[in-house]
Design a protein around this nucleic acid. Structure first.
Length: 629
RNA sequence: GCCCUCGUAGCUCAGUCGGCAGAGCAACCGCCUUGUAAGCGGUCGGUCGUCGGUUCGAGUCCGACCGAGGGCUCCA
């Protein structure tokens, strides 16, 4: 889907993925089990895990008939899932939290013991979820139903009246949990074992730290993240809007200021594409069912496609992807080995059905524009092509001020789950990995995590406050060239099958915009800022001069406005600060006299009076260098 | 789609026990003519998400629906 903007699918590779504890937030990359294990011995891990047990005790005291499921530590805290006779209220959470502090103060010891499966079953005779876990443990599965290398020993940890099936480790005594460093955050629904066919449990999320200061810091971090929320800033800065009731959920209106930013971003990217061997192409929004039958989308991607419309007795579908169109362009002529590679790029708007509950601002939408491209190349060109596209991708992302990356290389799924020649897969995987190494990007390998049609690199960026967002994807496709019988004429005069690579760099303009808003907290670099400078006349008599200066700035290619409202200067500055306009140019008697502008930056820095040309040169340099200011 | 919470003016929010729908900001109209984050006054602005029910009387209680927020599932 758009989170990775993979051109072919997402839904095609519907191998069931068992849910695991994950951090909060959107599209946080799942941590691998090995990463989790590194933290298991840490004090915070033990504190959080132990806090989960203490919470479970408090909940069971309140609901003796309640059933407990699992309660692991997670990034920043812990949760525990319960099956309870009634929904929990915010007041319940307060009561539970109070009781937790009492339990902590009682300083109970955590006692570990090993049990035989029979003993465990007797202990949890009235706890069906625990019985299911015990059954799994006997089969060598962990609490998430994933297979373990070694068959686990059944252990429990007991403190006070609560004994939980648990592999530990825990703190030694409840008093080692700081009562001033825990907080219950929210209650939400969660399916048992993450499977929507299973009963919905109530999950209580909590956070726990070593010190009250750390808790405070964490809450502050949450508040800071909330201030950057692209939905809030989108309204505050008048960038975009969503109208679920009148227009429909997941459909974005780009307002003039958001549209300006998108325009500047696209112009830059398109110019870079043209300068780097891409052809810009355009394709329509709908295509006949035949096309989607050949591509396989109707077989494998139907659940994400909208219902067909009938035109002259033929079924047409709104496009969920651009690839079939680009493939038809490739097929339109006989292709020679001399002409390869082809790089067809398109800002293609696609529509995909997303379930109502998952729509989220600009980050998860139903209609979006991908910066999509398809490369067609000879096998011998493939390594170079991959190298090129990865570097091009990094160049584009860096231009937007995104400089920290993490890559995820997904390789061939198990036997029978992949199309194409295994040797081709190995070549492709090797080329992908070699390119990552040359680019010196940190990466992880998701063994067997590739789609059935080819291996891929997903690239995530780290934003200004350390959150990871997946944007780019570079995917091989051994499937569509077969389905559409793509060929080129080789040196030997014979027909050969080209390699095909899908890629999206920013992913989707909508999602990228959302990430960019959050990364910059709305304070865009000068080249992207919708209004780059606002002229602030101190009194009415300075308005004419302000207009003149604004005209000169516009001639110089800068986006400038004049605030000719009847507000005082202080309020004009306040409004400009709130709009995060990079340059505030105050003009009063002195400036008119000296033909200068008093430059104030949105960082609150006051640069004092500057000749107009000097300011123009300064702002132009910031634009050219894509600086924040 | 599922669970919980929520829906009052353009925005942020108040509204007690069921008894005349409020404030600030914004917008608009004036006055002020201003020196680095809110000058002063006035005016406008509401089917209290929608529909139904209980009641003499519903923003308030009940139900359904729509939508949002946070999660789950999905999504890489």
């Amino acid at each position: 889907m758009e989170s990775a903007m993979d051109c072919v699918q997402s839904g095609w590779n519907r191998v069931s993925c068992t849910s695991r504890p994950r951090g909060e937030g959107y599209f946080v990359i799942q941590r691998s089990k090995t990463m989790n294990q590194k933290h298991e011995e840490s004090n915070l891990y033990k504190i959080r895990h132990s806090a989960a047990h203490v919470m479970a005790q408090a909940v069971l005291e309140m609901f003796p008939e309640g059933k407990v499921a699992i309660g692991p530590p997670i990034e920043d805290g812990f949760y525990y899932d319960f099956d309870l006779p009634r929904p929990l209220t915010p007041e319940d959470l307060e009561a539970i939290e109070r009781r937790m502090r009492e339990i902590i103060a009682s300083d109970y010891e955590f006692v570990r013991r090993e049990l035989s499966p029979e003993e465990a079953r007797a202990l949890y005779a009235d706890q069906p979820y625990k019985l299911e876990l015990i059954e799994g443990l006997e089969k060598g599965l962990d609490e998430y139903g994933m297979s373990e290398v070694e068959k686990p020993v059944i252990t429990t940890y007991r403190h006070a009246t609560f004994e939980d099936l648990c592999r530990g480790p825990h703190v030694e005594r409840t008093s080692q949990i700081n009562p001033d460093a825990i907080k219950l955050m929210k209650v939400s629904g969660a399916y048992w074992r993450g499977d929507e066919r299973n009963p919905m449990l109530q999950r209580i999320y909590g956070t726990a730290w070593e010190t009250a200061e750390q808790l405070e810091e964490y809450l502050h971090r949450l508040a800071e993240a909330e201030k950057r929320d692209h939905r809030k800033l989108g309204a505050q800065l008048d960038l975009f809007s969503i109208h679920p009731e009148q227009l429909g959920g997941g459909l974005i209106l780009w307002h003039p200021k958001g549209g300006l930013i998108r325009h500047v971003a696209e112009e830059f990217c398109k110019a870079e594409h043209l300068a780097h061997g891409y052809d810009l192409v355009y394709s329509p929004h709908i295509g006949k069912s035949t096309l989607w039958e050949i591509s396989g989308h109707l077989d494998f991607y139907r659940e994400n496609m909208y219902a067909p419309m009938e035109i002259d007795g033929q079924e047409y579908y709104l496009k969920p992807m651009n690839c079939p169109f680009h493939i038809l362009m490739y097929k339109n002529s006989l292709r020679s080995y001399r002409d390869l590679p082809f790089r067809f790029a398109e800002w293609g708007t696609v529509y995909r059905y997303e379930r109502g509950g998952v729509l989220h601002g600009l980050l998860r939408v139903r209609g979006f524009t991908q910066d999509d491209a398809h490369h067609f190349c000879r096998p011998d060109q493939m390594p170079e092509e991959i190298d090129f596209v990865l570097n091009f991708c990094l160049h584009i992302l860096r231009s937007f001020g995104l400089t920290e990356f993490n890559a995820y290389l997904s390789t061939r799924p198990g036997e029978g789950k992949a199309v194409g020649d295994p040797a081709q897969w190995r070549d492709a995987e090797a080329a992908l990995e070699a390119a990552l190494k040359r680019a010196a990007i940190p990466y992880e390998i998701d063994e067997g995590g590739g789609a059935f049609y080819g291996p891929k690199i997903d690239l995530a960026i780290r934003d200004a406050i350390g959150r990871e967002w997946q944007l780019s994807t570079i995917q091989f496709d051994f499937n569509l060239p077969e389905r559409f019988d793509l060929t080129y004429v080789g040196e030997d005069g014979q027909e050969h099958r080209p390699y095909m690579i899908h890629r999206a760099l920013l992913g989707s303009m909508e999602r990228f915009f959302g990430v960019l808003i959050e990364h910059y907290g709305g304070a865009f670099p000068v080249w992207l800022a919708p209004v780059q400078a606002v002229l602030i006349p101190i009194a009415d008599r300075h308005v004419a001069y302000a207009e003149q200066v604004a005209a000169r700035l516009k001639e110089a290619g800068l986006r400038a406005e004049v605030d000719d409202s009847s507000d005082r200067m202080g309020n004009k500055i306040r409004k400009a600060q709130e709009q995060k306009i990079p340059y505030m140019l105050v003009v009063g008697d002195k400036e008119v006299q000296a033909e200068t502008v008093a430059v104030r930056l949105r960082t609150n820095e006051n640069l004092g009076p500057k000749p107009i040309d000097e300011f123009i040169a300064m702002a132009q340099a910031a634009v050219a260098e894509k600086r924040e200011l």
